[in-house]
Nucleic acid binder design. Structure first.
Lengths: 76, 76
DNA sequence: CTTAAATGTAAAGTTCACTTTACGTTAAGT
DNA sequence: ACTTAACGTAAAGTGAACTTTACATTTAAG
């Protein structure tokens, strides 16, 4: 199971950023090369990004993957 | 594009490990909960692991995802 | 040399990340 | 109140990650 901080991080950037349009769901989606639906589903936790997308996201936020996504071993 | 060090890392563990059967393709696959085919394809670079699997792999090797997988921006 | 473990290859099937389209709701400015 | 940007939801389609099965090749050890 993977937990992520995407929603909080993006909303924080939205508030802080001068170019706030860069951090709307749509703005971020465009920079990542995905659709807005993809952002929504990730923020909701409906599904996990691919490793490639996780790398792109980490790059956009200037953080390591492990700072944004946390893996928790499944409870069997 | 993602480059990985899986083959080298696993072979290194194979040589160093006392319980070498833990680091055969089959042994590693079982611990990761995937098939041997999956290991082969990742080592060949045929496909990239999901983020969940990347986390599990990093955990098995005791390393960070970024130490095993490297993202290189696509040349358009 | 022989045998068995480990690795490689190939191909069809399943699942899920991601797209596409379309419409509904919320928030904020004027 | 009106408008519009931003956010949310739903559902069908595509492609790639991953499985399953089966067989062939390499490597190491007796």
């Amino acid at each position: 199971m993977i937990v992520n901080k995407l929603k909080d991080l993006r909303e924080k950037m939205l508030k802080q950023s001068v170019r706030s349009e860069d951090w709307t769901q749509e703005g971020l989606a465009k920079r990542l090369g995905v659709t807005r639906q993809t952002i929504i589903s990730m923020e909701k936790g409906t599904y996990n990004p691919s490793l490639v997308l996780a790398f792109k996201i980490a790059h956009e936020f200037g953080m390591a993957i492990e700072d944004i996504f946390e893996y928790r071993a499944e409870k069997k």
